[in-house]
Design a protein around this nucleic acid. Structure first.
Lengths: 109, 109
DNA sequence: GCTTATAATCGTAATATTGCAATGTATAAA
DNA sequence: TTTATACATTGCAATATTACGATTATAAGC
């Protein structure tokens, strides 16, 4: 059906899954890496860097904005995208805490 | 087109994205949490726990197996699922390293 | 042998995602 | 005021994902 039954899971599970889902595309990883590399902002040189169409990049940026991990501010006729530090750290911690749940479990099989 | 252009991204980007993608569904987060909680194995009580159909759970388990983060071993007529410690840590580190790329970046906008 | 339990797989329907061309919009430059 | 530039949005086609019922395969127990 292609429809995730979000209502049967907890808020936390849905939130974590949403963050992971947004990170779950190589183009979005590449975009984030570019933004980081240029230590600060960047506009749609991303189109040039990735080789994807402008519309496609725009769509991926929208996905990234949906978890708040990037922010876009207008500077003239250009857009300046950058990392939202706070949201970045939130995502980092949510994932980190999830992985920390697996301390010490002895292998069973 | 629904077809990710994996060939234009690096191995590392594709690998990280794949891991994130697999974690990007609340059912799979829930499944992993269950396996961890029962500190070791579990069979398809997952069906009961989540309320999803057996076929659906089986499919999600397959996704999780695709990144190696869980392993299933046969024990009689049951399957015993557990975390693969090594792969778990690999995934943890890949994500952790990705997030660590954003040290010290001054906010630009 | 047969029956039951457990889980994988197949087939299908519904919805989501990816990607792009075309179009729209706002700003800057001329 | 026109024109160009930079993005966002829309609409569409192709593919992927999610979910489930039905079927199949395997092993245990009789």
């Amino acid at each position: 059906m292609g429809l995730t039954k979000t209502e049967i899971f907890t808020e936390a599970q849905n939130e974590l899954a949403h963050i992971a889902k947004v990170l779950g595309h190589p183009a979005r990883i590449a975009i984030l890496e570019q933004i980081l590399q240029r230590e600060g902002c960047i506009c749609n040189d991303l189109v040039f860097e990735t080789g994807l169409a402008q519309a496609t990049i725009s769509q991926h940026l929208k996905e990234l904005k949906s978890i708040g991990i990037i922010r876009g501010t207008i500077s003239g006729k250009r857009m300046c995208y950058c990392i939202d530090q706070e949201k970045w750290e939130t995502a980092q911690e949510l994932l980190s805490n999830f992985f920390k749940k697996n301390q010490n479990t002895a292998n069973c099989c």
